[in-house]
């Protein structure tokens, strides 16, 4: 299965397959084969080669919390929702928070998006940054294509805001 985790505006793409208590995890072009058991609810003991990862995971209302090696990380599984049709529009724009490479474009001109939808994924320093729709609207123009270089502050997508009903 394929999962995207969002942590502090970065997205982590992971694939995982399971055979009994063996798990095959692919992340950042590296494969990890682990053996794992749930010792008590939410508490895992994961054997990776000659070391053991001990962790505790809980699910809150929106977020997952993972405790590993004494630190806690709050992550959100990313929902990739489909586009929805809308009627009235207003103008708006979205600039890139970083300089990097466009790795994925989720929309094309004419698409309708809902607030929070992912429009574009930009990669910099091995981290991914999400450009999300700040409001419901319609895509007027996508200014980049995949693999393009993008500079900080450049407008990624021109998004026309839906007027309040």
């Amino acid at each position: 299965m394929f999962i995207n985790y969002e942590h502090e505006n970065h997205v982590y793409n992971v694939t995982v397959e399971r055979r009994k208590n063996h798990y095959y995890i692919m992340y950042d072009n590296t494969e990890y084969t682990v053996e794992a058991d749930e010792i008590k609810p939410g508490q895992l003991r994961i054997k990776l080669g000659d070391r053991v990862i001990k962790c505790v995971i809980t699910e809150g209302e929106k977020d997952k919390f993972v405790f590993v090696d004494g630190d806690v990380f709050k992550v959100k599984p990313v929902e990739l929702t489909g586009a929805k049709k809308t009627k009235e529009k207003m103008e708006g724009d979205l600039s890139s928070p970083i300089s990097g490479k466009v790795v994925s474009i989720k929309v094309k001109s004419g698409d309708s998006v809902k607030k929070g939808d992912i429009l574009m994924v930009i990669e910099a320093m091995k981290m991914e940054y999400l450009i999300r729709a700040p409001y419901d609207g319609k895509v007027k123009k996508v200014n980049f294509k995949e693999k393009d270089q993008i500079e900080i502050g450049q407008n990624t997508v021109e998004l026309i805001r839906n007027k309040e009903a």
């Binding site: 299965m1 982590y12 992971v14 399971r18 992340y27 994961i46 090696d69 630190d71």
Partner: peptide, 30 residues
């Protein structure tokens, strides 16, 4: 950022706690 141990832990946890039908949904989502 998120350390690799946390990513592995999350992936294992989600794999453990996802039923078969949901796996299909994940694949077809987008």
């Amino acid at each position: 950022g998120l350390p690799v141990d946390a990513i592995i832990a999350l992936a294992v946890y989600d794999s453990m706690h996802t039923k078969t039908q949901e796996v299909v949904r994940y694949k077809e989502v987008d």
